[in-house]
Write a protein that binds this DNA or RNA. Structure first.
Length: 927
RNA sequence: GCGGAUGUGGCGUAAUUGGUAGCCGCGUUAGACUUAGGAUCUAAUGUCGAAAGGCGUGGGGGUUCGAGUCCCUUCAUCCGCACCA
């Protein structure tokens, strides 16, 4: 029988589904293993060959672990809420739920064809009420919690209320938006509304007026990681800063734990680095500066208190609250002009020109509390409102931005740190600020001569003693804005009484997403949910916003553990069994979004005692991108004539993308090209050797570049087993690599060659032998088992595929069709090519699925060698090789080698100075 | 500017530890079989050279008996971040 992959794959796909072979039980004596691939947003375009890369990699590992005796959880679901479905709904009027469901169906078909061993009984969709009930439930828990810095965990807000009632804010150390101070009496005298507003300062999910990234075209706010270079990631629309009442998550409370947790997990160094940078911890001091002649003070944050003697001016951000009060009358007009200008600049403009120095003098002076000197206070947009206190002490000698500012406005520059071994210099001659990471202090009174670290300590001691500041840790991380003015997302389970938000009762969850007549904002600018009829709870209005895209993905990996549990977020026993994700596979683009928020969300659930592990994803692997390989034709300018690649230098040409489906091996199919588009029907060609050769370039895989490869087409042509193996064969999993369809033929040949081992006779009948295998055959087998096991463990799948090829090549040469060899080989190949292996497994007489087989054990005895072929080199250059027994002593080897004719020839009568013998490696003779 | 990654044949890549550079596959070339070949099989294929042999892992330098691998330096490409005090 010929290898008929279509029949085979169809048959086993059905069998597997009918028999639920990939269903994992929550009760098992086996050790558990949880493999998770990031669930997809089901877009209308379907999958291209880049998408399944991670799924296949995860699937191979899941299958491998099953064979190794693990109970494997390998689920899949859909991140079903999102903007594209809603944009489509606005355009067409179709309900996003309808299009989403349609897309999900298409995805499911595509995934099934690839033979992915998902436990579909555990499927989750974030837009299902059963699912988002728990997203809402989690939000309410966040609302009802605050973060205690002393206990380093989230605590029920009632404990904080209790404390306020008895002691006010005395002795509290909790995460908050801004430090407040009140007595128990003041608290108790507050009205209910006032108390509720005060609590917002502490809740982990809180409502506040925040500066948001507002995207007018999308009609919604975006999170920081949804904005790049001042435009939205999705759609590329301009984004502006705007003050709006928004829900936020107090992720900043978890900054330190998010940082510490990174040390405990196996993630790539690059992703950890991105997260560390995003969290952006800096240790320094906050210092209060008096303002000359005024009662106001200004607080600044600095990482370098040791440079306080080099401060020659202060800078406020244009948004700073005290500007109005401190500005002198002479400067008022100029300051107002500058502030208005600075505030109206869009994010985009601000980021585009970071090199131009702008600013204005307020007319006011601050008093340096350490030196006692008066220094001018300036305003400039290089100081950011969102970081620290929005005010800095400028040390132009040792900060490049302060330096540029000082030079531009002719402000003094004082050197206060000198690198060790160097002397102080005249700052007038400087063209840039000087590095001050290491060195000793000068011009700095009581810290002169001290090393910078020591000096910083001394200064902090002093400011603490003077009661004008303290040492402080700052994080760049911002709280995450959690409201979106959109329809297709989770509704907030919150209602408003006298404009104060309250959570709905748990028993009334989920708050279902209502039907509305149009997906656009209302005339008066409210989000789409304002259109919903009876959008109330117990007579009070519900929130008009919905949750952002990352809400639903925060804890989906937990829901998979017990997807049918209606009583709790996660069934306790299920969580204790599955613990957390052992291997998580997905794109690196989620580094600061999903991978940070879900860690925080998980830590929060951990604090509540709902999950048993603090980190959700133990090991993370980021699959590389598959790039497209675009083909080009070259049209001579102003004509309809196309010139072949190697002739194009002789003409002025424009490169034009051409569909890769009408190009074979860079040779253009001219007839298909003429038919491709009407304007090419009469095209003429200048050929080389009778062919039209196309140019190529590696680009992003995209429709507009006509380089998209659809996996369905390849499954149709070669089968899923071949596609799976080829995607793995392309190169290291984590590396980006171009897609070249041509290479798939090689893997297809391998699969057919493997098939032929079982069908090697004139009629192509299935035929295997019960004969005992030879030593040589056993060696080939066990060498392969070893390589496959080792390489699979470290997810080096490209080399694993290569090992299979070598094995099948060698067995083909020996015409081996012995069951004792082919059966274990089939098992170890099955994670990679599950369909053909399952089929052959049954042909070999097995009744149960190969998924329940056991990974063969490596027999080292077959791998033992009695000899080793030594490369013999002279002065480091290999000249010949010599086969020697492995149990020869070093001295014997040396003697033997030197006595050979070849060695004598290369020595050419000279005496060797030194002979290096490394057993089972090399012999090197130096002369 | 900062951070991360990567540079090896015409192409994708291999070489867990410093020990025969180029495994496996694509492509190419030649041959066999065939009515046919975009099927299959065989052989060759880093580069210069007729050969002996020389040269070769982005460039330069170093450590070592020995370097793709370690150290210094430099260049290029890709990705992420971007006034973070």
């Amino acid at each position: 029988m010929d290898y008929n992959f279509k029949e085979i794959e169809k048959k086993w796909q059905q069998e597997w589904e009918q028999n639920d072979v990939y269903h994992a039980s929550n009760v098992s004596d086996k050790p558990k293993y949880y493999v998770l691939s990031m669930f997809p947003y089901p877009s209308g375009a379907g999958l291209h060959v880049g998408h399944p890369l991670g799924y296949i990699a995860g699937d191979i590992f899941a299958r491998y672990k099953r064979l190794k005796g693990f109970n494997v959880l390998h689920p899949m679901g859909y991140d079903a809420y999102g903007l594209p479905a809603e944009q489509y709904a606005i355009q067409t009027g179709q309900h996003p739920a309808v299009t989403t469901e349609k897309n999900i169906e298409r995805y499911r078909q595509q995934l099934d064809k690839l033979g992915l061993s998902f436990d579909w009984k555990r499927e989750v969709k974030t837009c299902n009420p059963d699912y988002y009930k728990w997203t809402q439930w989690g939000f309410i828990r966040l609302f009802n919690s605050y973060y205690c810095n002393k206990r380093k965990k989230a605590v029920d807000i009632t404990e904080l209320i209790q404390h306020f009632t008895q002691y006010g804010t005395q002795d509290i150390d909790v995460a908050c938006s801004k430090p407040l101070s009140f007595t128990a009496e003041e608290w108790n005298n507050k009205t209910e509304k006032e108390q509720q507003l005060t609590l917002m300062n502490y809740r982990l999910a809180y409502l506040s007026d925040s500066m948001v990234n507002w995207c007018p075209q999308l009609g919604t706010v975006l999170a920081n990681d949804e904005v790049i270079n001042g435009v939205s990631v999705r759609g590329g629309y301009p984004v502006e800063r705007k003050l709006m009442k928004q829900w936020s998550l107090r992720i900043t409370a978890y900054a330190q734990r998010l940082l510490d947790g990174l040390e405990t997990i196996q993630w790539s160094e690059s992703i950890k680095e991105v997260q560390r940078y995003w969290i952006g911890k800096s240790i320094g001091a906050s210092i209060w500066f008096d303002i000359v002649g005024q009662s106001e003070k200004m607080e600044i944050f600095t990482t370098r208190p040791d440079t306080v003697f080099g401060v020659t001016f202060m800078v406020l951000c244009p948004e700073h609250a005290i500007i109005e009060q401190i500005t002198t009358t002479e400067q008022k007009e100029e300051v107002e002009k500058y502030v208005t200008w600075a505030k109206n600049r869009s994010e985009r403009e601000r980021q585009a020109e970071t090199k131009t120095v702008t600013g204005v003098f307020t007319g006011a002076f601050a008093k340096n509390p350490i030196t006692g000197k008066n220094i001018p206070i300036w305003i400039s947009d290089y100081v950011l409102a969102g970081y620290g206190t929005g005010a800095i002490m400028a040390v132009p000698a040792h900060d490049s931005r302060d330096f540029a500012f000082a030079r531009h406005f002719k402000l003094p520059i004082i050197q206060v740190v000198v690198p060790n071994g160097q002397q102080e210099e005249n700052t007038d001659n400087w063209t840039e600020s000087k590095d001050s990471k290491d060195g000793y202090c000068v011009n700095s009174d009581f810290i002169n001569g001290l090393q910078v670290k020591e000096a910083a300590k001394k200064v902090v001691e002093k400011i603490v003693a003077m009661n004008i500041g303290k040492s402080q840790i700052n994080y760049r991380l911002r709280d995450a804005i959690f409201s979106r003015q959109r329809y297709w997302g989770e509704p907030f389970p919150m209602y408003y009484k006298d404009s104060v938000p309250y959570p709905v009762e748990d028993k009334d969850l989920p708050i279902l997403l209502p039907e509305i007549d149009s997906y656009l904002p209302t005339k008066d600018g409210n989000p789409p949910l304002a259109r919903a009829k009876n959008w109330t709870y117990k007579g009070y209005p519900l929130d008009f916003n919905t949750m952002p895209g990352f809400a639903g993905s925060n804890a989906y990996y937990l829901r998979y553990m017990s997807p049918d549990c209606h009583e709790a977020y996660i069934d306790k026993k299920a969580n204790e069994y599955w613990q957390n994700v052992d291997l998580y596979i997905g794109g690196a683009e989620h580094a600061t979004g999903h991978l940070l928020y879900s860690r925080m969300w998980n830590m929060f659930l951990y604090d509540l005692g709902i999950v048993c592990k603090e980190e959700p994803f133990h090991k993370l692997v980021n699959q590389g991108m598959i790039q497209g390989r675009s083909n080009f034709v070259y049209r001579i300018k102003g004509t309809n004539t196309f010139v072949s690649l190697n002739q194009k230098e002789n003409y002025p040409t424009d490169p034009i993308h051409v569909d890769i489906n009408i190009v074979n091996n860079d040779v253009l199919d001219i007839e298909k090209f003429k038919a491709w588009r009407p304007e090419f029907a009469n095209a003429e060609f200048i050929l080389e050797n009778g062919k039209y050769i196309c140019g190529y370039e590696i680009e992003k895989m995209s429709k507009s570049m006509y380089n998209v490869q659809n996996p369905d087409d390849l499954v149709e042509k070669y089968g899923a087993d071949t596609l799976r193996m080829y995607e793995m064969f392309l190169g290291p999993l984590e590396q980006s690599k171009p897609w070249d369809t041509k290479g798939i033929e090689g893997v297809f040949r391998f699969i057919k060659k493997f098939w032929k081992l079982f069908h090697n006779n004139p009629n192509f009948d299935f035929q295997i032998s019960k004969e005992k295998p030879s030593e040589q055959e056993l060696k080939i087998l066990h060498k392969t088992i070893k390589k496959v096991q080792e390489d699979t463990e470290r997810m080096s799948y490209n080399t694993t595929v290569s090992a299979f090829m070598i094995c099948v090549n060698e067995l083909s040469d020996l015409k081996c069709n012995k069951q004792e060899i082919l059966e274990p080989l089939t098992i170890i190949l099955s994670p990679f090519a599950p369909f053909i292996c399952e089929h052959l497994w049954h042909l070999m007489g097995h009744e149960t699925t190969i998924n329940y087989a056991t990974f063969p054990i490596i027999e080292e005895k077959y791998l033992q060698e009695s000899t080793y072929t030594y490369p013999i080199s002279f002065n480091g250059k290999t000249r010949f090789s010599l086969q020697l027994s492995i149990d020869m002593s070093v001295a014997d080897i040396e003697k033997h080698v030197l006595n050979t004719e070849d060695a004598q020839k290369w020595l050419n009568g000279q005496k060797p100075k030194k002979v290096i013998v490394v057993p089972k490696k090399i012999v090197n003779i130096v002369f």
